[in-house]
C-alpha cells in the first residue's frame, strides 16, 4: 500500500539567484549530477539563452559555442558538468548539440529526417541520451548510445576549467 508522507523531514529551499539581466524569467533548470553546476534558460536580448552557473556561488561559467543559435531549450548536464547537451535553433532547423567543456569540442547529433526534437535528457555519465521528438503525427522518446562519441563523465572524472574542483 502506498504511503502518503506529509510534513515529514524539512525541505531546505534556496533560490537559484539573480541571472544578472534584471528580472528575467528563468526556466528549464538542469543540475549536474553532483549538483555543482546549474543550467537554466533565461531571456537575454529577447532571446532564450542558456546560462551556466556554479553552485552555490552563482558564478557564471563560460561556454564556447551556442552563440547565435538561440533560442535555446532543454539543457542537460553530465555528472561534473563536463558535457552540456542542448536544443538550439540553427536556421529553420532545431538541432541537438553537446558541448564538451573540458576540450571545447562541439558534437552534433543528427536525427532521422522529419523528427523535430522537443526535449532531451543526458545521462549523468554521458553514455546515453534520451530525445523526445515530434514527427509523423506522434510524439516519441528515443535513446542513443554515446559511448563512441563521449568519454564518460564520472564522479572522479576530468576536472573542468571553470568548474569546482571537488565533488561532495
Amino acid at each position: 500500500m502506498a504511503l502518503l508522507l506529509s510534513g515529514c523531514g524539512s525541505w531546505a529551499r534556496r533560490s537559484a539567484g539573480p541571472v544578472g539581466w534584471g528580472g528575467a524569467d528563468r526556466q528549464d533548470p538542469a543540475l549536474s549530477g553532483n549538483g555543482r553546476v546549474l543550467a537554466s534558460v533565461v531571456r537575454r536580448d529577447g532571446r532564450d539563452t542558456v546560462l551556466l552557473q556554479e553552485q552555490p556561488s552563482g558564478t557564471v561559467l563560460p561556454l564556447r559555442h551556442f552563440g547565435r543559435l538561440q533560442p535555446h531549450r532543454s539543457p542537460s548536464l553530465s555528472w561534473n558538468g563536463r558535457y552540456l547537451a542542448l536544443l538550439v535553433q540553427q536556421g529553420p532547423e532545431r538541432r541537438v548539440l553537446i558541448e564538451d567543456r573540458a576540450t571545447g569540442r562541439l558534437h552534433r547529433l543528427p536525427l532521422p529526417g522529419g523528427l523535430v526534437p522537443e526535449s532531451l535528457s543526458l545521462a549523468a555519465d554521458g553514455r546515453r541520451i534520451a530525445i523526445a521528438t515530434e514527427g509523423d503525427g506522434r510524439s516519441r522518446v528515443q535513446l542513443y548510445d554515446l559511448t563512441n562519441l563521449l568519454e564518460p563523465d564520472l564522479p572522479a572524472g576530468l576536472p573542468v576549467r571553470g568548474a569546482p574542483a571537488t565533488t561532495p
Binding site: A12, D28, L38
Partner: peptide
C-alpha cells in the same frame, strides 16, 4: 518543469510566481 540531481539529493524546479518564472533549488531530506 522539474529536474533531479543524479545523486537524488537536490531538485531544481521551475516555478511561476506573480507572472515571473523562477528556479528553486530544494534539498531533499
Amino acid at each position: 518543469r522539474v529536474s533531479l540531481r543524479a545523486d537524488g539529493r537536490e531538485l531544481a524546479v521551475e516555478v511561476s510566481r506573480q507572472g515571473q518564472w523562477q528556479v528553486d533549488l530544494i534539498a531533499v531530506p
